[in-house]
Every structure is written in structure tokens, then in C-alpha cells.
Design a protein around this nucleic acid. Sequence first.
DNA 1: CGTGCGCTTGACTTTTTTCAATAAAGGTGG
DNA 2: CCACCTTTATTGAAAAAAGTCAAGCGCACG
Lengths: 232, 232
Amino acid sequence: MNIEQKKDLLNLVPFFRGLPDDCLEKLAEITREHTFAPKEPIFGEGAEADGMFIVLNGKLYVYKLSPDGKEQILKIFESMEVLGEAAVFSGHRYPANAAALEETRTLIIPRAGVIRQCREFPDLALSLLDVLSGRLRHFVHLVESLSLQEVPTRLAVYLLYLSARKDGAEQFDLEIPKGRVAAMLGTLPETLSRALAKMGKEGLLQTEGSRGITLLDRERLQGLADGEWRLR
Amino acid sequence: MNIEQKKDLLNLVPFFRGLPDDCLEKLAEITREHTFAPKEPIFGEGAEADGMFIVLNGKLYVYKLSPDGKEQILKIFESMEVLGEAAVFSGHRYPANAAALEETRTLIIPRAGVIRQCREFPDLALSLLDVLSGRLRHFVHLVESLSLQEVPTRLAVYLLYLSARKDGAEQFDLEIPKGRVAAMLGTLPETLSRALAKMGKEGLLQTEGSRGITLLDRERLQGLADGEWRLR
DNA sequence: CGTGCGCTTGACTTTTTTCAATAAAGGTGG
DNA sequence: CCACCTTTATTGAAAAAAGTCAAGCGCACG
């Protein structure tokens, strides 16, 4: 793939919107492309940071592991998202693990190059500040969810979020295996399974096959998410 | 307080180290000073962001509240730390609450000014990128701790961290009430109290008065922190 | 067509929370 | 400096939530 093609790809990423053309040009010059197979590790916790990744398509996840092997998913990344920025600016090492969930094509921009371009084009730095700030909000929300709420509440929040992402559709798909959803919510497959079963019995939703969800009572689901009542 | 004095204060903050003199000058011009009394709210979740705070002295904490009033402390800020940066660069609103733990003197740099100076002095932007990246690491650790480990483990990690911050002293002080320590660890005062009592019975540590701690068996405490065994 | 992985369910254990009562500490004003 | 009052900490007992272990089912993929 040549530089022009890479530049065209960068141009598609909202993150780079509005940056001067010669900035993109320089970034394209140093950018590598890499495609990861499903389940392929992308980086490991503590690894020396190559640089920053742009997801072109596919899906990957960033996670931590406990000593006994339990997974906590920190975030799932999809098309057009940027990851690994934190390791570029402090610590030089990735603070967690990442692996592909499906075939995933990425661009990799090396550490040194990013920093150099930030000096030259402050707008790039501001863009990255925006990304990092958003990431921080994401983590604040995650901490809140994990520490203040019980599993059915977290699940309700998650399902409503998924529905919202699809224009508020009643019927949609968990796009990842349930075991992974559990790992996102900071719990185990068994606990998630029971929570879904209870919500089904309460008439809040219906499950179809292994990943299908139909929301039946948005009202009460929202109340559950807001902590107004509990699933007994 | 005049501009020169503010500039001198900014100069003391490691965060501003190495920035050009005229950058500090401009920042000093727009900086306000404010002192908060103990327990005084600094900002509330969702409030329009004034700008970024620099803690000159004192201590404050940033936290979330659950619907039923339980507190989760996200981070405690002390002298020379910067907070509120995330709200400057995305969202325009603070994502959590902050209040003073004791009398706390701060400098406040307005949003617009920070952004303007970032454009003019890319090093300021890089400094902020560094701060935000570090903050992200902090949250990654917090999420890991909350989701992957039980309370005694989290407590062990916290105590060893406190000890390390004081050159590895065996004897030191929780600098905040135990109830707040509980809120940092994502649990309740009762649970914390019991964890400390058990650790005392196991000979891992000793408590003195309301905030004093003496570590008696670093080895085993470390093992507990590493998840190698459990407190039965 | 079988094997394996993911999902579900049940029974049981452990951890944490909840509720309540008491004790200790800390701060304030006399 | 002491007495009082409020806040903070401890402890017990009971309940609830989540985790563990184990068995079984079903679907997808080779």
C-alpha cells in the first residue's frame, strides 16, 4: 500500500478531520498497516509501545487479567477508533492487553512520529487531548458502574446503550459472545445468564438464540438502570 | 495577588516545568486563585466547566455518587496536582463531583485560555497529554482493582502503596478517615473495618488510634496484594 | 456426524452488604 | 481544660448478591 492510499484512509477517520494536508501527508509516510486475525493478540500489558493504532475495520478489545485468569474488558474498539494513545505520551508501555475479536485491519503510527507531529501541528495535539478526555469519561463511567451498581443494573444500562446505538431499536444483537459481555460488566457468564433469565421472567426482555435481544419494557428497564428498583 | 506572584506559583508546579516564560506569563494573566474550606464543594457532576485547577496545597477528592448515596472516590488530589483537564477538552462539563477534604488553595485556569495556549505552545499540550495519559493509567488500575480483586486484596495494595509513598516506612498514617478509605476501595466502612481486624489477627499489621498503621509482615502483605493467597 | 465451545441451570460457598447497637474520637464552646 | 455533642469506627447477626463447581444441552464448525 502506498502513501497516497494511506493518506486517503487517514482522511476517512473522523479523528483526523480538519488537520492540515501536510500533517496527514507526514503521518501517512510513517504509518504502517497491519491486519490481525480473530483472537490474535495485538499487544500485551507491559509491552513496549510501538505507537498508536487506528482501527480501519473489524473489532478488538482491551482487557486486564486477574491472577486467576478472570478477564475484565476495559473497552471494545470498532471502526475509526483510536487506541494506544496513552502509551504514547506516558510510560512507554501499554497498560493492558489487546486482542482482535474478529479480523481487524489497523494503521499503526509510531510513537516518535506522533509526538513530532504534535509539536508541529497543535491541532493534532488538541485532537488527541479530546480523545483522551473522552476515554477518561468512559473510565469514570466504568468505575461508577462497577462499584456502585449490581449486575442486573449494569446489564440494563448496557442493553439500553446498545439499543440507543441502533437508533433505539427494540430488537438487536449483542455483537459479542455472552461470555464477553459478562467480562465487560465485570462479572461471570453464570451471573449474566441468571440476570438475563430473571429479566426475561419479569417481562423486561426476551432473548432469541444466542445473541438476540428484544426489549419488551423500556420503562422498567430504564428504572432498573437508574437504580429506582431492584430485580428480586 | 498580582500576576508576578501567580507566575511564581505556576513556576513551582512540576507540570509547568520547561514551558517558555511567555507562556507562563500569559497563563498567569488569566489565572484566578481560590481557596476552599474543608468539605466545601469544588464542582458538581454535570456542572459547566470553568477550567482546570492546580492544587497549591491542601487535599481534595473527586467522586461519584450512587442513587442511594454511596460514594466512590475516583482520586484524591494533593499539592501540585492538576485536575479538571478532561472537562476542558471534551464535554465542557465535569464528569464527577469534587470537594475539599481540608482547606485547599487552588489556581484556576479558564478553559478558553488553556486551549488558546495549547495552540501557541505545543509543549503545554504535550504536558497535558502526559497528565491525561497518567490519569488513564490510574483509572485502568482502579477498574482492575474493583473488578478483579476482593476487599482485603485491594486494601493490601493500598497500604503498600501508602507505605511506598513514605519511603517504605513500616509505620504511617492513613491521611483520611477510614470511611473515605473505604470509599476509595469501593466498599463500606464496616467491610473495611473487618478486613483490618482480620489482618490484625493474622499478624499482618497493627492499627493505632484511628488512623495509625504499622505493617508487621510485608512479605505476606505483598503476597496478599499479588493474589497469591486469601484472608480466611 | 461427532467434538468442542459456549450457554444455561442447580446446589452450595464465600464475600459483601445491610441493619442495628455500642464505643471511641474529635471538635466546640463554656 | 473539661463536658458535651456530633461524627466516625467497631462488632454482631442476618440477608443478599455474586462466585464456584458440576452437569447437561445445543449449536456451529470442522
